[in-house]
């Protein structure tokens, strides 16, 4: 949902709905028993209720609904709206009979089976969230998991999370750590290729500077403004790798070719800024400006991509054009023997 701008009607509508309703993000906590009927046990039901109370302490949780609430409601109705009876009975026979009354008293049996299987071996606790943000969902999941590990469920019962918001955070975690790994490994591979290409460890090292500085600058900025590391950012960092190394190869390769011919450092520099330098700066400007229209999109990821592409191009262009020449100047003796 945060992929829409704050002012976008869809996001406004989502906020309004979540403020007034129990929450539009449905998460589930699945209780699984080993045998049929294990969901009728008062011990399990009281445990489920304790989990519900714990989760409700998180402000993102709009409401929780489970077979526990159905049982309490039936009891309340049977005892002519006596709210003191709105508790889970301590006798399994009564639980079974109350649920049977529910099945007898009309309505769609599927209403009940949203929360428990017809065999009563599994139950599904609805955890409605007001916010689908990964951080918010993670906080709810962590709170639940902490409670579950500190207060283990009754013998033979396993409890698992399910639902789209939960899948989202799992997916994001997988994706982000996957992206981080692939980014790190491509960084190493690119470095080795550079050393091989220039047949020089030093040149290989310097050629990595533009992309390293650019990626670090992006991450620093993202961290500074507090933007979560999500998919668009992950993709962008990989792109930076490719774009920035391009500039560096271009610059270094040309410089070496020219220098071989001129054997004069100042002359080489003049020549490279005339030709390759101009080409790189134009490349930077064209791509950077080309992505600017994305800033006017309603979808936040598009804005992110547009803004970051602009920044990536400018930063890596500047590093290539300013830092690389200064460094080569400084180490010219050892670089060009």
């Amino acid at each position: 949902m945060n992929w829409f701008k704050k002012s976008h009607p869809i996001r406004i509508a989502d906020n309004a709905m979540n403020a007034h309703l129990a929450g539009t993000y449905m998460n589930y906590l699945v209780f699984e028993g080993e045998e049929e009927g294990s969901m009728k046990s008062p011990e399990l039901l009281n445990y489920m209720y304790a989990v519900q109370q714990e989760l409700s302490k998180n402000e993102t949780v709009g409401s929780t609904t489970g077979v526990t609430d159905i049982i309490k409601k039936i009891r309340y109705e049977l005892y002519t709206a006596d709210s003191s009876k709105m508790v889970i009975p301590d006798n399994q026979l009564e639980v079974a009979q109350l649920l049977f009354v529910f099945e007898m008293s009309g309505g769609d049996p599927d209403d009940l089976f949203e929360f428990v299987t017809p065999e009563y071996d599994k139950a599904n606790l609805w955890v409605q969230l007001k916010n689908g943000d990964n951080l918010a969902v993670s906080a709810v999941v962590d709170r639940g998991n902490k409670f579950l590990s500190e207060n283990p469920p009754p013998e033979g019962i396993t409890v698992k999370w399910a639902g789209l918001p939960y899948i989202n955070i799992e997916w994001q975690n997988q994706m982000v750590s996957g992206m981080q790994k692939s980014l790190a490994s491509s960084f190493v591979v690119v470095f080795l290729m550079m050393v091989f290409l220039f047949r020089s460890f030093k040149w290989g090292f310097f050629s990595m500077l533009p992309l390293t500085i650019t990626v670090m600058a992006i991450y620093a900025f993202i961290g500074y403004i507090g933007k979560p590391y999500d998919m668009p950012v992950a993709v962008l960092s990989s792109l930076t790798l490719g774009l920035s190394i391009d500039f560096a190869i271009h610059f270094i390769q040309r410089l070496r070719v020219i220098h071989k011919r001129t054997q004069n450092f100042d002359e080489s520099f003049n020549e490279i800024f005339e030709g390759t330098g101009r080409a790189i700066s134009r490349n930077v400007m064209v791509i950077a400006i080309g992505f600017l229209p994305m800033l006017f999109s309603t979808l936040v990821p598009y804005i992110t991509v547009g803004a970051f592409f602009f920044a990536i191009m400018i930063v890596s262009g500047l590093v290539t054009m300013l830092l690389l020449p200064s460094i080569t100047q400084m180490f010219k003796k050892s670089l060009f023997k």
């Binding site: 049977l78 006798n91 009564e94 079974a96 009979q97 109350l98 009354v101 007898m104 008293s105 009309g106």
Partner: peptide, 13 residues
């Protein structure tokens, strides 16, 4: 309906 566990007779809808 008569619910033996709580010894209660209840009219139902």
């Amino acid at each position: 309906i008569y619910i033996p566990s709580i010894d209660l007779v209840k009219p139902i809808s």
